[in-house]
């Protein structure tokens, strides 16, 4: 479904991505793990069109989407749930979700998806008229994911969904990621929390300073000695 080939991205003179290639197949959860500054978020931002690659291509179902602006990439069905959640703080929960369906015209489908979001996140339904900015961190993450679901994505990209959340909330978020995937949404997940991410992912890629150092099935990487030492804090 998603194919990234030899992606290079620069911030001015600094080369943040030094030729990344990865693939996400239909129905998979694929995770990208790595230390701070390894280029995880940069990869995601390049795929979503927030950054333009200097070299290489991103294609979705055979169509090249790299070089398109962010809103065009969204139109193609690649939806990013950005790092730090970035909900609309002064819009209500309902309005935030409505914004997620901005490009859609099918009123019936939108209603269905809204039902689904409220089933996944009952808390959001309780808070429907509350402003996004007054939600707790976990609720905001749910809202950001809900907003992503409202776009009916082909590929949902989650950038650090566990960031700054209490462990119990992180667990719920990951349960929901698995549930979304079972319902047919393909997911590309960027995470610092490598243990969590690898335990839900079908496959994973380990990034090191702008290149892919390791790749393999999630469970395999979870038991890989090098990964355990470097990212899971075992000695």
């Amino acid at each position: 479904m998603l194919k990234v080939e030899n992606l290079h991205t620069h911030y001015g003179q600094i080369e943040a991505l030094k030729g990344i290639s990865l693939e996400v197949n239909d129905g998979e959860i694929v995770t990208l793990i790595g230390a701070n500054g390894a280029g995880k978020s940069t990869t995601l931002k390049t795929i979503s069109g927030q950054l333009a690659p200097t070299e290489g291509t991103v294609s979705l179902d055979g169509e090249v989407v790299s070089g398109m602006l962010a809103h065009k990439v969204t139109e193609k069905g690649i939806i990013q749930v950005p790092e730090g959640r970035r909900i609309f703080p002064r819009m209500t929960v309902a309005e935030n979700l409505e914004m997620g369906a901005f490009l859609r015209k099918d009123a019936e489908g939108i209603k269905e998806d809204l039902e689904q979001v409220f089933t996944l996140f009952p808390r959001l339904k309780e808070r429907i008229n509350q402003k996004g900015g007054t939600l707790s961190g976990g609720e905001q993450q749910m809202l950001a994911m809900g907003r992503g679901i409202m776009a009916r994505p082909k590929l949902l990209m989650l950038d650090e969904p566990s960031m700054g959340l209490a462990p119990v909330v992180v667990e719920t978020i990951f349960e929901i990621i698995e549930r979304l995937n079972k319902e047919g949404i393909t997911i590309l997940l960027v995470e610092q929390n490598a243990a969590m991410a690898l335990s839900v992912a079908h496959r994973g890629y380990v990034l090191e300073v702008g290149s892919i150092a390791l790749e393999g099935p999630g469970k395999e990487l979870l038991h890989n000695e090098q990964v355990r030492k470097t990212y899971l804090g075992e000695s």
Binding site: L69, H71, T74, V81, R86, M91, F102, L103
Partner: peptide, 25 residues
């Protein structure tokens, strides 16, 4: 209008607005 709503979204968060499909330009 739709345009009005995209302005509100853009005013609140440009990155998020683009990520829901609003053409910022």
């Amino acid at each position: 209008s739709r345009l009005g709503r995209s302005w509100t979204a853009m005013r609140e968060d440009e990155v998020a607005a683009a990520s829901v499909g609003i053409n910022i330009t």
